[in-house]
Write a protein that binds this DNA or RNA. Structure first.
Length: 480
RNA sequence: CGGGGCGUAGCGCAGCUUGGUAGCGCGUCUGGUUCGGGACCAGAAGGCCGUGUGUUCAAAUCACAUCGCCCCGACCA
């Protein structure tokens, strides 16, 4: 029997506390989630990574439908003239827009932007589709890819092309738009916590950090294991800014022509990067059960012995019938090799079934999150497994919450702020002024405001940095 | 756009300082023994040394250029 030891195993993956970026890269490549492509800044999402995205899509899409939205698809290309109609929006996105200038060998009379986001195309269509108050609210979502010509990229976290969903809605009043904006942020929050097992801070973005062209941007922010924050989703109230730029008007009940109030909200494949950095450990991925393409892997032990593979097959059907995503690994590798492999791939539960287990009518189940091993009777196995998957989810969420709490401090002096953002979130009072925000970023080595949380408290009356009257309690952090 | 690092077998790397037959580990393939924490033995296949130009009798190795990738900043989901 070869010596098993962690040292030998972890040689293949960098350790989180020694080199977090390298650990991240090792994990996503070695677990077959992604591969680098021939195009700079673009990634190939391989089946194992795409499987996670499909589960995210399915569960998020159901929530959109439940809140009254329908899916549609709008074009990838945006004529330059159309993109230019909302000044602040253009200014924000112009530096990272990719352009199509030729069709075949012929130069286009007007170049086409490859969508960096679709407010403009959708706005122009809404302008045609919305005529009357009866057409409102208009509640649509699209699943698509967008392109932003990024200068530096990292798989999932920032790529030149990425997959996302963008919801776009139009309403009769500002209040309705605001209500929608908050509703969808609430959907995101619930999704992050109940599906991805990631606790998030929700709140409003500063003027500097808000979406280009929005009246207000709301966000959910999560804390990674290296102390950096990740924006996991945003929801924008555009007020009537885009309605005015794109002429989205309706005739009210009173017969008056009014501008609509619009919203947009989006989440992307970046969430996958987030769940890796929140839950992963030195053995590799730790997938939250609800987005794990394989929730339980069945490993037949001494599989050449009569009855073992048959029993494994029975277990597989039993679990599949109960709606559990399971797989039997009957490859020729040794048991030890498979243990390590599936741990690296983050499968939430491992089920071992060998001759001894069959004799005793039981299986061995090992949880990925705490690696604890237990014997489980064959009878009622599907129920037990489902319960354990839920336990793993809760365990991951609690662990992530503890991580965030241990990396969150309150600051009443600038020195505390400066020190605190080196390790995680800092809550501090802030004046709300962009100039002050930029100075803080400069002096702290890159920490920015993440949001002004809905959950406010009064730490003091003055801004932690400039001493002017405090506007709001604000989360600061270095961010991805 | 600045700073750093790296391109040699499918993957990870050594060789370069001091030019002289292309190496190692893992993986792959064949056969056998194994099988409850990365098994072992024997055999085999696999390379335009990123690309180009130069120096030289001779270049993976030296020079110049170029392309690409990774990491860290600035900018952004």
């Amino acid at each position: 029997m070869a010596k098993n030891n962690d040292q030998e195993f972890v040689k293949h993956i960098a350790k989180r506390d020694e080199d977090f970026p390298q650990w991240y890269t090792d994990v996503i490549l070695k677990t077959d989630m992604v591969d680098y492509s021939d195009v700079k800044g673009c990634m190939v999402i391989k089946p194992y990574g795409y499987g996670v995205w499909e589960l995210i899509q399915a569960q998020m899409d159901r929530r959109f439908k439940d809140t009254g939205h329908v899916n549609a698809y709008f074009p990838l290309f945006i004529p330059e003239s159309l993109l230019l109609k909302e000044a602040e929006h253009v200014e924000g996105f112009a530096p990272e827009v990719a352009w199509v200038t030729h069709g075949g060998s012929e130069k286009l009379t007007e170049r086409l932007a490859i969508r960096p986001t679709s407010e403009t195309v959708i706005g122009s269509m809404y302008s045609k589709w919305i005529q009357s108050y009866r057409d409102l609210p208009m509640l649509m979502n699209q699943w698509c890819n967008v392109v932003r010509w990024e200068k530096s990229t990292r798989p999932f976290l920032r790529t030149s092309e990425f997959l996302w969903q963008e919801g776009h809605t139009a309403h009769a009043t500002f209040d309705e738009a605001q209500e929608e904006t908050m509703r969808m942020l609430g959907v995101y929050r619930e999704f992050a916590q109940n599906v991805l097992a990631i606790p998030v801070v929700t709140g409003r973005k500063s003027e500097k950090e808000k979406f280009a062209g929005a009246y207000a941007t709301y966000t959910m922010e999560a804390m990674m294991q290296d102390g950096k924050a990740l924006q996991m989703g945003t929801s924008h109230n555009m007020a009537d800014n885009f309605a005015k730029g794109y002429d989205i008007q309706y005739l009210s009940r009173e017969g008056k022509l009014e501008y609509c109030f619009t919203t947009s909200w989006g989440t992307s494949t970046r969430m996958i990067g987030g769940l890796i950095m929140v839950h992963g450990d030195d053995r590799g991925l730790v997938l939250p059960p609800r987005v794990a393409p394989i929730q339980a892997v069945i490993l037949p032990i001494a599989q050449h012995k009569p009855g073992v593979l048959e029993k494994a097959g029975e277990l597989l059907h039993m679990l599949n019938d109960a709606g559990i995503r399971a797989k039997v690994d009957d490859s020729e590798q040794s048991a030890g090799w498979k243990f390590n492999q599936w741990e690296m791939k983050g499968v939430p539960l491992r089920i071992e079934i060998g001759p001894k287990d069959i004799e005793q009518n039981q299986v061995v189940v090992v949880r990925r999150d705490d690696l604890k091993k237990q014997f489980v009777p064959m009878e009622g196995l599907a129920n037990t497994i489902q319960g354990m998957l839920d336990d793993v989810h809760r365990g991951l969420f609690d662990k992530a919450l503890k991580l965030r709490e241990s990396r969150t401090v309150d600051a009443t002096t600038f020195e505390q702020l400066r020190e605190g953002v080196q390790h995680g979130f800092v809550r501090a009072m802030w004046c709300g002024e962009t100039a002050c925000e930029m100075e803080i970023k400069e002096k702290t080595g890159g920490a920015s405001t993440r949001c002004m949380p809905f959950e406010q408290k009064q730490l003091s009356d003055v801004c932690v940095h400039c001493g002017k009257p405090a506007h709001a309690l604000t989360y600061f952090a270095k961010a991805y």
